[in-house]
Design a protein around this nucleic acid. Structure first.
Lengths: 112, 112
DNA sequence: GGATGACATAGACAGGCGTCGATGTCTGAA
DNA sequence: TTCAGACATCGACGCCTGTCTATGTCATCC
């Protein structure tokens, strides 16, 4: 798979989604469907600079550094996070396109 | 838990979500994070009457009736589907409030 | 009452997932 | 060169999940 985050924008309502579309979007939801990963995404997305250092993320949880690293890898592999190494530190940033793909599932399904 | 679908509306960006909020929303995403369940939701949401009979849903998949029943139970337990028995048939309908809770995660995160 | 059909439940199996401790890799400083 | 720190990877463990077959429950029709 090249870029999972390219799955896009077939809302739940309207016309039924195809099996292929479901197979594309499900991994994104699966990556988000964990409390720790949700908080990781939230922490990164809500940081002032739009990115966060792994060292800071580790401190926010009562989990091993290996576990946090694993969750970040899952989010990165799903295409939800960008990874950039700067010196000794590694910074993760959310990929808006990926979030938009997931949001597309619900937008017309839930008219305000 | 009484009603999982009551978890609501803390977007990913903005301020970081609490551990409790993450624990509330994650089960909703986990219920949706499966290709079969995504298609089930889509089929039900996109049907003209807003609901669907299990007999029709079974035909849309190459899976056992027991497996479809299992997936419907997962979605129902998560609060994403309403269940109503009418005579011999059982109809499922999407709960807009539950979908709205999930959509709230992404709305401000993705300004149009 | 008995048969049939729609749906749920139970039990079993393989595979995936979250977590950990231990170890590896790379960078910057002494 | 050596050391220390930041992060990733490995291997292992228990648990959860998706699927199946078999069986149960309930409503309808004869």
């Amino acid at each position: 798979m090249s870029d999972p985050a390219l799955a896009c924008c077939t809302p739940l309502s309207g016309t039924a989604m195809s099996a292929e579309q479901a197979e594309q979007v499900a991994p994104l939801l699966k990556a988000l469907a964990d409390p720790v990963r949700l908080r990781l995404m939230s922490l990164i997305a809500s940081s002032a600079s739009g990115e966060a250092c792994v060292c800071d993320l580790n401190d926010a949880f009562d989990l091993t550094q290996a576990t946090i690293s694993h969750h970040l890898k899952v989010l990165h592999s799903a295409g939800l996070l960008d990874r950039e190494k700067r010196g000794v530190w590694v910074y993760y940033a959310v990929r808006p396109a990926a979030l938009r793909a997931v949001a597309g599932l619900f937008e017309t399904a839930v008219p305000a």
